[in-house]
Design a protein around this nucleic acid. Structure first.
Length: 112
DNA sequence: ATTCTTACA
DNA sequence: TGTAAGGA
């Protein structure tokens, strides 16, 4: 019985670790992002041109790739737009939010 | 199969 | 903004 619990515990730990792993390595194309966020590709490209969202620029490729943080940003911007915000206003608000979140996690990262 | 740019409705 | 054309 003790052995069984041990096994369950290790599975739990692994799933937590791979969860983090998954999110930090997740990088998807514009098609997927569009599909999961509901934002048309046309608009995602437009936002990116305006510099409101970033793309993982891999050397020598014109193809846009979005990581976990950008997808999160996109979702946040989408919500604000639905609440009546201007694209610019939404972007500014998100920018500040991301800044404070990132600085908070940098502090935590130093402790590990 | 996917994404990219350009351009016109 | 949506969509179609034409190339990578």
């Amino acid at each position: 019985m003790a052995k069984k619990n041990q096994k369950i515990q290790s599975v739990k730990e692994k799933s937590v670790l791979s969860d983090y792993d998954f999110l930090s390595k997740l990088i998807v194309g514009i098609g997927e992002v569009s599909k999961i966020t509901g934002i048309p590709q046309r608009q995602l490209r437009y936002w990116q041109e305006k510099g409101l969202i970033q793309t993982a620029d891999e050397a020598g490729s014109t193809i846009r790739r979005f990581d976990y943080l950008e997808i999160k940003k996109i979702l946040l911007i989408k919500e604000l737009l639905e609440e009546g915000y201007t694209l610019e206003a939404a972007a500014k608000k998100i920018e500040k939010r991301m800044e404070s979140i990132n600085s908070a996690f940098k502090k935590l990262k130093k402790l590990s």
